[in-house]
Design a binder for these strands. Structure first.
Lengths: 333, 333
DNA sequence: CTGAAAGCGCTTACAG
DNA sequence: CTGAAAGCGCTTACAG
């Protein structure tokens, strides 16, 4: 499989490789029609394809960005990725996606690998476990955008849902449905992951706003594996909650599983709202009431910001970009 | 953001860049401890990271493979991708994933782009619309593995479900549940996509095997957008089917939607089996009976085969690798 | 309008 | 045990 190079094309066309290069880069300012035609023919005859690796080395840019998601199992991650890919395709950028699996060690490996591969910039859903690495990138002025999670003390453009608003919308809707014993369950709070913290915070504020008591037993932040336990505890209370807000799609599925296995009727025994509008929400029985994130817009904005930085067209101070959630009322409330 | 190069390390360590390169590639056969230490210190002091692009250019390999899926919306695709990524990670290969969106034009662009980026090999779920390109890769002996779909007349290792068996398992189970009016619905047959063709073929063989008549009205292969229509037609028959096999996960969701909107009780009015074990199958009400593909094993095998080809360790004749489906009985039958 | 030359940051065969 | 040199396949400033 002998690869054909620019040199081969130049020889066949009877010109120098500089000229072939000019042709490829569409700098025909002064190129004769004759030359163009000869090069074109040589290229198609040889089936020549430029070697992007060589070009990247010389140009010191790869037109490739990296995306590292903390956990690809969230439907939110996959939607954001799709939006980023679409935007990058439209702008002739390639994207390499990596899944850190909520593991800071994997995340660090991916960051190093992608930078070694000379990506022009990085969009990351940070695990939060690699402060020094994040700081190094910022210091080096390496194009970087965070999604979904705030890392305290770092000056990075960050794309976030208005999480407090999301929780507020859920509580408000529960209240409108005459619930007063409202709970919230989300995944582990030990690593201070922004959406979890903010959704609980928003939940508390909303409860106060509607004059409802904050009952600690109604608030859980535990690992996915312990959610069945947490639900058991919650439903053993003298006065269990009559409505629950699921902090994300994976928690929602755990709650649905618990309800199914314990014959808890939704919404009669328990009203339910999940953050993240999962694909099966409308066909589920009962159809799931959810809080949707504008994932597509968020992904697009992340890509937009990053490409602007790469092209040096983004001069503003790094800040947090908030996006509004939407309540989609179906049958679980 | 001045990048530090091997030259900088060499200077600081007081050696030549050849020696630094040897160090990096762990060829210490004859390297003095002293030299090693000096290089190590220089590297960490400067925060040096090798430029993989330069290495790739020189070595004429990138340790990167491309994966092009026909349609990433299928849960099967995402599972296979995960398996490929895991396998490649373990073998120090990187992977770039692209979604052709069932569009041969996009597929061609991705193939060309990935080859220009010098990937060492390609795993593709072929749309079937780029015969010349596939042929060119084979002719050039470019490492290539197909998944999910057979392209007639091409000699390529191909990873496939035993689709006829999958259909057989479903029909058999329906028969055991005393159904005789059994239908099958899948997405459009116009492009002769292997799993669709083979599943219908397997369905027909199974029907004959169990002495049941083959009723054309019970067999539909239409685009996703027309499935509601097809279902309407089917259920307007004097004798509509009492059991349906959904050809894939997306079709399954369309059928579930139809049933919900038309108050068709599953499984009482209609028994249902879907090919592909969707994540929400066990928590659905009723929990979904499915035919699972061993997606993880299939992805692993695809990656295994490809890496062997890349390393020139795969000398056998290209062939089709079949994997067995599994029936998972839940509540929809 | 086109070409010769230098250089991107590595690796590697070879010399010593 | 280590270094000088060539070369991977491009791009680009410059000369003519």
């Amino acid at each position: 499989m002998k690869r054909v190079t620019m040199q081969d094309v130049a020889k066949l066309a009877g010109v120098s490789k500089s000229t072939v290069s000019q042709y490829l880069n569409k700098r025909y300012d002064y190129m004769s029609e004759e030359t163009k035609r000869r090069i074109e023919n040589a290229i198609s005859e040889l089936g020549y394809q430029p070697n992007i690796v060589a070009r990247s080395l010389k140009q010191k840019k790869t037109s490739t960005i990296g995306v590292i998601v903390a956990n690809i199992l969230h439907s939110f991650s996959t939607k954001v990725i799709r939006a980023i890919e679409d935007f990058c395709n439209d702008n002739d950028f390639h994207v390499i996606v990596c899944n850190a699996d909520d593991d800071p060690v994997k995340e660090a490996n991916y960051i190093n690998m992608l930078r070694a591969k000379q990506v022009d910039g990085l969009i990351v859903f940070p695990t939060g476990g690699n402060l020094e690495l994040y700081e190094m990138m910022i210091e080096q002025n390496f194009p970087l955008v965070f999604v979904d999670r705030i890392i305290d003390g770092l000056s990075v453009d960050t794309i976030l849902l208005d999480n407090e608003k999301a929780a507020y919308l859920a509580v408000e809707h529960f209240v409108n449905c005459n619930h007063t014993r409202i709970g919230i369950i989300t995944t582990s709070l030990s690593r201070k992951v922004t959406p979890r913290i903010e959704r609980i915070e928003g939940y508390k504020k909303a409860m106060l706003h509607f004059g409802l008591p904050i009952v600690d037993e109604y608030i859980k932040g535990v690992d996915l594996d312990y959610i069945q336990n947490a639900l058991n505890t919650m439903f053993s209370l003298k006065e269990p909650p009559t409505a629950i807000l699921a902090g994300n799609d994976l928690v929602l599925m755990e709650i649905l599983r618990y309800a199914k296995e314990n014959s808890i009727n939704i919404p009669n025994d328990l009203a339910l709202i999940g953050v993240d509008d999962v694909p099966f929400a409308p066909i589920f029985t009962p159809a799931l009431t959810t809080i949707a994130q504008p994932a597509f817009e968020m992904g697009e904005k992340a890509a937009q910001l990053l490409l602007d930085k790469i092209k040096n067209e983004h001069k503003e101070q790094a800040r947090i970009h908030r996006f509004p959630p939407t309540l989609i009322v179906r049958e679980t409330t």
